[in-house]
Amino acid sequence: MRLNDCDPGFKHEVAAEPGGAGIRACFACAACSARCPVGANRPAYDPRRIIRLTLLGRREEVLASPLIWLCSSCYSCGEVCPQQVRFTEVLTAIKNIAAREGHAPPSAKITAELLAKQGRLLEVTDFENDKRSGLGLPPVQQRPEDFQAILGLKPSEGEAGEEPR
């Protein structure tokens, strides 16, 4: 690794994102890595390593890594961290930067489009409401207007039930 290839500003960029400031406090004890259930099943996923690479400024290596999308967001690392790094939040900050640069998995775009189309993740049709009413449950509705306004997205065209493009 050549230091000249590193981006010393990357850690500041992460720290400036909401939830990212904790990265400044890490003293590399690896309590997070020891407690991580994902790392226990997939040793390549190592919270301390992601933090060190970020602090070193390995910007592209971190943002383009498929590993950053493997956090199960169980928050176990945060409970054992003696420095209150809050790694789940730090990684959310890193993933948000990665997403803005086109590294998000395709499901991310679909999620936003589903919310703009339905106002909820899962579609509600007469079928669902008939089932609910058969059990004596009140109907639920799709009211996507607020979500379209917040996300600045118009729902895409398409048949009901079809995945938006």
């Binding site: 909401p18 959310t92 993933k95 948000n96 919310l115 106002g119 109907p139 639920v140 979500f147 917040i150």
Partner: peptide
């Protein structure tokens, strides 16, 4: 309340600013 829907969680990993607005709603 029929107008309550998504909490914002599904967007958090990629777009926490909008996820926060949805939760705030």
């Amino acid at each position: 309340d029929q107008s309550l829907a998504c909490c914002g969680y599904p967007l958090k990993g990629t777009d926490q600013a909008h996820a926060l607005t949805i939760a705030a709603r």
